[in-house]
Write a protein that binds this DNA or RNA. Structure first.
Lengths: 209, 209
DNA sequence: CACATGTCTATACAGGTGTATAATGACTGC
DNA sequence: GCAGTCATTATACACCTGTATAGACATGTG
């Protein structure tokens, strides 16, 4: 008598989402999915789609929200690896890139399709991206208290790193594994540049707070 | 009697491209354009489209190539501004962001749609992006010979800057002007971090060449 | 039992899509 | 002047789209 779970053996919201994910691929973007197509893949009548989502855009937003979970998983794993060894940048970037390698299409959506589609869709992507930035910023602050020199504008640094890593990840996505490893190495170096640069600038012009 | 210019007052390739550009907007991506729609906008019969392009993908690639011109224009202007004053980063980034502000939709295409669409489309975007990277790298090398300390891995630096600036530009695109100015300031700072960081790393671990 | 309720389906409609075909009309060279 | 060569067009086809409508079926309640 609650929401809508497992009433019969019937098709549920999650099955529709799964069907949509099955349709996505390197040449198939969320915004190109049609309602009928998703319904067909899910094995339901086109009209039954409306029982689960108002329209195809609502499905897209649901996909993004789901992708947010993948993102949080990445953060969690990166944090584990960091606390283990002494290095910070490399294990984090590698955690990210590895998640990219798995055929989990959710992350792909978040990386590639942030800038096309409906406003609701774009806002949903932006929300998740900012979430990522915020977590990274807090991590940076925490790290700077432990064993780093006082960081220069951690919010800016986290934003720069996030955008850069996402851009590199997006480019790495449809590359063969060996080139992807190279992209990982490059990304690690780039992030180091940002971090070291921020510290150097902090020494020149001390941060206001 | 050459290619196909101004045979009559008839519709030409460029008019079709112009029509496609007219249709694009913040919620309208290249990959969502239909052949009939573009033909309608251009005032020609759907079939006449084929006289100018093999299919809609070829139009998309043509748009990208055109956008490359916009990009080169940005580079040229940035170079002028740099040689005028002493600063390097800010005038360059500002030139980029200003071009973004103009309603020249070409740059928008390049920024937002690099990761969706056909393979040919993605390759075309990547080609232009690499072109941008190469020019920036050469500029960096040239600058380092003049009055900068020897730069650390200019190719990597230029790649990082390019990807970052593009990502920031993409995000800035559908922001109101005042927030866009803020994004510009942030981007300038980020690029400085990369440059300064690269120089600092160069001092620690001297570049192989 | 009868009845109402909610979920799914089949059918249908109006419109859009890419493209094959044949016809129109303007231009060339002879 | 006339046939040939184009670019362009109108028409047509098969298919896809989102959604309105109404019927089928199972369920819960009296």
């Amino acid at each position: 008598m609650q929401k809508a779970s497992v009433r019969k053996g019937g098709i549920e919201r999650d099955d529709v989402i799964a069907a949509a994910l099955k349709l996505l691929g390197p040449n198939r973007s969320v915004s190109s999915l049609s309602l009928r197509e998703v319904a067909r893949e899910a094995g339901i009548a086109p009209n039954s789609f409306y029982r689960h989502f108002r329209d195809i855009d609502e499905l897209a937003v649901a996909l993004i929200d789901l992708a947010g979970g993948t993102l949080r998983q990445i953060i969690r794993e990166a944090r584990l690896r960091v606390s283990a060894g002494g290095e910070v940048v490399r294990p984090s970037v590698e955690a990210f890139m590895e998640q990219l390698g798995s055929d989990d299409k959710l992350l792909h959506i978040l990386l590639r399709e942030g800038s096309v589609g409906s406003d609701a869709f774009k806002q949903a992507v932006d929300r998740e991206l900012r979430h990522f930035e915020d977590e990274l910023r807090d991590d940076l602050i925490r790290l700077s208290q432990v064993d780093w020199p006082k960081a220069y504008q951690p919010a800016l640094v986290s934003k720069a790193i996030t955008r850069l890593v996402f851009a590199m990840g997006s480019a790495a996505m449809d590359l063969p594994p060996e080139q992807r490893q190279q992209m990982t190495d490059q990304t690690v170096e780039m992030v180091r540049m940002i971090v070291v640069g921020a510290q150097a600038l902090a020494r020149e012009v001390p941060s206001p707070n």
